[in-house]
Amino acid sequence: MRIAVTRTGGFAGITRRAELDTTGRHDEARLRSLAVAALSDGRPDRPAGVPDGFDYELEVDGIKAYCADPHLSAPQRELISRVLGERA
């Protein structure tokens, strides 16, 4: 499963994007379940965010969903942290 997270907005307005392939990873099962939950908690279009809040685009095997701070579900928050954390 390929998971990509793109974060835009924020006070700095700087875009960050990270992508990973779950295949063969030690946390593959966790990532797959987070990805499914995060997508189903997401919205089909970009939600209107709060001023300076981060906006997120989640893409899982080509399926996209959107969410924005500070209204993330727990799976969205963990997935975003794990995927963007890959580059932190």
């Binding site: 997401g42 089909p44 939600p47 969903a65 209204h71």
Partner: peptide
């Protein structure tokens, strides 16, 4: 039909 659980 992604359910929107957390509208902003």
């Amino acid at each position: 039909n992604v359910p929107a659980h957390r509208p902003v």
